[in-house]
Amino acid sequence: MSVRIQSDGQTVTAYLEGEIDHHTAAEMRRAIDDELQCGTVKLLILDFRDVSFMDSSGIGLVMGRYRLMRFYDGQLQVLNTSPQIYKVMRIAGLERLAVIEKGEMKRSDPA
């Protein structure tokens, strides 16, 4: 599983893992959306600390969850984005939609 989820019914934290591309994003999306279905969630936290790579499929993932949380009258927070991930998010202006907290410079990933 590429996403680990913690929930108390109001706050859902999704710890994303590995690489986010078009191939892996669909599974992550389904896992997160299953948790949001109850409609009581007020805060969704996407934690990117264990994500080593992300392309624009990750933008779709974040934007889709942003729209969903707005529909539920809740908020979205994005945590621990590496420089590469933050650079991709900036292209979509995601820093204007969600609170993004950048992470520490991580171990270098293999080429």
Partner: peptide, 15 residues
């Protein structure tokens, strides 16, 4: 569709 951001070429251009 809805889950594609439409930013593929923008990313290629930027990077």
């Amino acid at each position: 569709g809805g889950e594609r951001a439409g930013l593929g070429f923008a990313v290629m251009q930027t990077f």
